[in-house]
Design a protein around this nucleic acid. Structure first.
Lengths: 166, 166
DNA sequence: GTGCTATCGTTGCAGCTATCAACGATTTGG
DNA sequence: CCAAATCGTTGATAGCTGCAACGATAGCAC
């Protein structure tokens, strides 16, 4: 049925199928992964795990978190969080204290030096975002963000509270 | 320094940090992963691996591909593709033939039954896309797709050729 | 022609990661 | 005061990813 089973060697770079490139979901997944990889790379170049940033960012917003709530917010297995916090605590960025009201819990809080480090990673990620979304002008960037937030509230409720008031 | 290290147990659902929710890159990564997980789930419920769809979609567009070009397009290790093609070939969806012009190569082509199965998975994924992007009206969906495509051409060139003419 | 090197698909391995069960400590409720 | 549930932690297990090595074939130098 194949008159001549010969590959056409003419193309310079192999592109993904039109069908996939036309799928917003595929683009979303692929771009999301690309961003995550680049973020991981840059963070690790500065001595951080990418999850360090997520954890510090959560802790940087004031409310005293227990490990279960952090793990839940990041959709992370609690057992994986243990090693992350061990590492952060060893580097004096966070502190674990027993909750006096429920001594099973650990209340995790960020330290002053943790805040400084958070600012450093934040700058790195922020820089990357600027480059990654550079193809869009600022109006489009904002429009994109609004749409992503809308999708997140429906498809990943833990991600985004929708209360943009303030 | 912590007057009372007590977690505030008042919140119903734990949300991710404001800082992360305000990051388009974070939303992109998280939504992309969420989409991929849902797609995997639905595909597997119908007896497909998600990559089966990617491979079939590429093969469904006519040009005769060699394994290296497929792996390259999907940013997939060639060794991983072997098992995928073995499985697809076993189910009579694709065929491997030696390229007579270069007997090291395998030219992979889709079979008639492969096209039928492709149509089935395509419908499944298409259905999912409809649901996933439901929070956006069709104008916004199109705007979003255009932006994602623009980002892809810069950040993941293998993903999208930008030639939307036709 | 004869080697030398590169490429293609394939196999197998080794490291990493996620996922889960189980445990001690503690709280809660009867 | 006892039983069940919860919290953080540890350990083990399965699965995936990327990498090196291999046989087969091609291209190139001479």
């Amino acid at each position: 049925m194949n008159e001549l089973a010969t590959a056409d060697t003419s193309r310079p770079v192999q592109l993904v199928a039109r069908e996939l490139a036309n799928s917003s979901g595929y683009l979303l997944a692929r771009l999301g992964l690309a961003f995550k990889l680049q973020a991981t790379e840059r963070a690790e170049a500065s001595g951080f795990e990418l999850y360090d940033y997520s954890v510090l960012a959560i802790l940087g917003e004031g409310s005293r978190e227990t490990q279960a709530t952090i793990a839940d917010a990041l959709t992370l297995d609690p057992s994986r969080l243990v090693a992350l916090l061990d590492s952060l605590e060893e580097r004096d960025m966070v502190e674990r204290q027993r909750d006096p009201q429920d001594r099973r819990r650990h209340v995790v809080s960020i330290t002053n030096s943790g805040r400084k480090e958070l600012a450093r990673v934040r700058a790195i990620i922020s820089q990357l975002e600027g480059e990654f979304f550079a193809p869009l002008d600022s109006a489009n960037r904002e429009a994109l963000h609004t749409m992503l937030a809308a999708l997140a509230t429906q498809n990943d409720p833990r991600c985004c509270p929708l209360d943009d008031e303030e």
